[in-house]
Structures are given as structure tokens and as C-alpha cells.
């Protein structure tokens, strides 16, 4: 039967056709010169001799559904014609990519699986143009991305590039706080969230600009940071006195967020007062893979964490003494009996 089809088809049009099967199982014939414009199909035909009959139809990749495929064929049909001017091609391309972003993504993916590089480039360029200059919120909305990063993840540097044991420790400490932070985030209203996000991006860049912890030193801002730190510690010490480490830290982190909101506009510039102590210390250079161990903390683990906190406090003390001992007296951490920490000015 298929042979018969071919026999009828051929003399009529004097064209050769290729049999192609899309992922949904439907089979269709496409003019050879159009289909061969896709390198993936071209390879199947030349290397395997496939596509010459219905039972030898070339199976197209999963990502190419019939609707997308007909769109791609339109593109190929236009561009395989020789002698078109660059201007004509450009005008066609511009019209061609006028579609919603979801379709655009699917088309990019389908074109990629057919190795149709010019179309991949065209659609990628279109997607890049959509992303260009937009805020993360806008991009999330356009592409329906889940806003699944916590505030501190947005703040935190991107990758643990230094194999510093202190950073590993911090990662674990931070995991403890993750749950609470999520809880708090839920409570924040939309308007604030938006502004917080903007600040986060800027902070991210600011981090790369070198104000993040430990990767790049930025002596200029540091002094002022310390000042702020001191104030903060003094005030919290006075107001609250010794407190369970766990609670205190999360409180500080939270208040930090609020602060961040207020300062959202200015954080990109060389404003030295944004990162307070928590920024300096408790911004772990965590990969998101580190975040998986967070939610449940068993008692043994808690004990271990507390020991680490102790250890950590010691490290901090020594570190500060070393780094800026002459400028002012170091902040000391002391550990009370049940493994909690409080700070005071020594």
C-alpha cells in the first residue's frame, strides 16, 4: 500500500518524499529537500538509508510533537529555498518567533533534538531577549519558574569554592535554620517579598564584587561593618542577655532580612553598612546539595552540632583577634553549660 502511494505520488510531483514518524505514532510524508534541512533526518537518510518507505519511517525524537514539527517544517521550507536575500530571511525569522514563551521553549528544544542549529540559535536569541534586563521576579513570572530558593540562598554566594572546614561547619549550622526561615518567609507579604528579591540579586552581585565572606577581601567596607556589628551585639546583649544560640541566631537573621528590605535600593552601591555580622559569618558558601540534610535533626546530631558551635565560636575568636586585633578588642563568644552560646564584648 505504501509502495502504491509512492508510485502515485512520484510521477505527479516529481519530488521524493521522506517518511517520518512523530512521537505520538503518526506517520507523514515530507518533501525530501525540506526534511533533509534537519541534520538529524539527513543523517538517518544518508547513513541508515531510513525513511524511504512507510515501514521504514524515521522516528523523530520525543521532543518533536506534530504541532511543533509542522512549525519546524515551515521554517525549513522557507530557508531551504536558495537565493533568498538576508533581509528576506531576517524578516521571516522575526515573524516566525512571534509566539508565547512556552511555545518558544518547546520549539527550541525540538529544534535542538533535530540538530537544527540555525533555529536553535534563533529561538535562543529570542529567549535571551526576553530575559535581558528583567528582574528575577519578572523572569520567574514569564517562565513560571518556582520561587523555591530561600532568602538566604538568594543571598548566599553561589558555590563553595574554597575547601575551608569553617565553611563546611557553617553549612551545617545553617541547615538548622532553614526550616524556620521558610516559615518566616511564608509570612512575608508579597510587596515586601518583591523588594527583598531585588535586593538579593544585588547582594549576589555585591558578593561577587567582593563583599561576601572570605573569597575576596574588601578592606574598605570592613571597618564600618565592624562598627555596625558592635552596635548590634551590644544592643542585643543589653536587651536580651544570654539566650539560647539557636533562637538568637534565627532572630538575628530575621531582623537582618527586615533591614535588608529597608536598604534594598542602596545595596548595589558601595554602602558599607548592609552586611552585619551574620552576613559575614553565617553566609555559608553552600551548594544547594548541602541543604538536603536540614529538616529533621535528631538528638545525636544536635549534640554534635552544639559541639561544633562551640568549636566554631573558638575559631571565630581566634580569627578576629588575628585579623584586626589592634583596631579594637575582639568580640568573645562564651559557651555556657548546656552548650549554648552567648556573646559579649570582652
Amino acid at each position: 500500500m505504501s509502495e502504491g502511494d509512492m508510485a502515485i505520488m512520484k510521477p505527479e510531483t516529481m519530488k521524493s518524499y521522506i517518511w517520518l514518524q512523530t512521537a505520538d505514532g503518526s506517520i507523514q510524508q515530507v518533501e525530501q529537500e525540506v526534511a533533509m534541512f534537519c541534520p538529524m533526518i539527513c543523517q538517518e537518510v544518508i547513513q541508515k538509508g531510513a525513511g524511504s518507505s512507510k515501514n521504514q519511517a524515521i522516528s523523530l525524537p520525543q521532543r518533536v510533537n506534530p504541532a511543533l514539527f509542522s512549525l519546524i517544517l515551515d521554517y525549513c521550507r522557507f530557508h531551504q529555498v536558495p537565493g533568498r536575500s538576508n533581509k528576506e530571511r531576517k524578516t521571516y525569522d522575526e515573524k516566525f518567533i512571534r509566539m508565547d514563551t512556552k511555545r518558544l521553549c518547546e520549539l527550541t528544544s525540538a529544534a535542538d533534538s533535530l540538530q537544527l542549529k540555525p533555529l536553535v540559535d534563533l529561538t535562543s536569541r529570542a529567549l535571551a531577549r526576553i530575559i535581558e534586563g528583567k528582574t528575577p521576579e519578572e523572569i520567574r513570572e514569564i517562565f513560571h519558574l518556582p520561587d523555591d530558593l530561600t532568602e538566604e540562598e538568594k543571598l548566599e554566594p553561589l558555590k563553595n569554592t574554597m575547601d575551608d572546614p569553617r565553611i563546611r561547619l557553617l553549612n551545617r549550622l545553617y541547615a538548622k535554620k532553614r526550616k524556620e526561615l521558610k516559615e518566616r518567609e511564608r509570612l512575608k507579604n508579597v510587596e515586601v517579598e518583591g523588594r527583598v528579591d531585588e535586593r538579593s540579586v544585588d547582594d549576589l552581585l555585591t558578593y561577587i564584587n567582593g563583599r561576601g565572606p572570605k573569597v575576596v577581601k574588601m578592606p574598605k567596607g570592613k571597618k564600618k561593618k565592624k562598627k555596625k556589628k558592635e552596635q548590634k551585639i551590644v544592643s542585643s546583649d543589653e536587651k536580651e542577655g544570654p539566650q539560647e544560640f539557636h533562637d538568637k541566631e534565627s532572630h538575628d537573621l530575621h531582623s537582618e532580612e527586615q533591614e535588608g528590605v529597608d536598604e534594598s535600593g542602596s545595596s548595589m552601591r558601595e554602602v558599607p553598612n548592609l552586611p552585619s555580622m551574620e552576613d559575614d559569618i553565617f553566609t555559608p558558601e553552600a551548594g544547594s546539595e548541602d541543604g538536603d540534610m536540614d529538616d529533621e535533626i535528631d538528638p545525636a546530631m544536635k549534640e554534635m552540632l552544639d559541639r561544633e558551635v562551640e568549636d566554631f565560636a573558638r575559631r571565630l575568636n581566634s580569627n578576629w583577634v588575628r585579623s584586626r586585633g589592634q583596631e579594637r578588642r575582639p568580640v568573645h563568644f562564651s559557651i555556657n553549660g548546656n552548650g549554648t552560646t552567648r556573646r559579649h564584648i570582652g
Binding site: P146, D148, L204
Partner: peptide
């Protein structure tokens, strides 16, 4: 680089 705060992926 800003895309790194879009989502976990």
C-alpha cells in the same frame, strides 16, 4: 549571573 537567584534549578 543574575539567573542564579531565579530558582534552585
Amino acid at each position: 549571573i543574575r539567573t542564579s537567584v531565579l530558582s534552585s534549578k
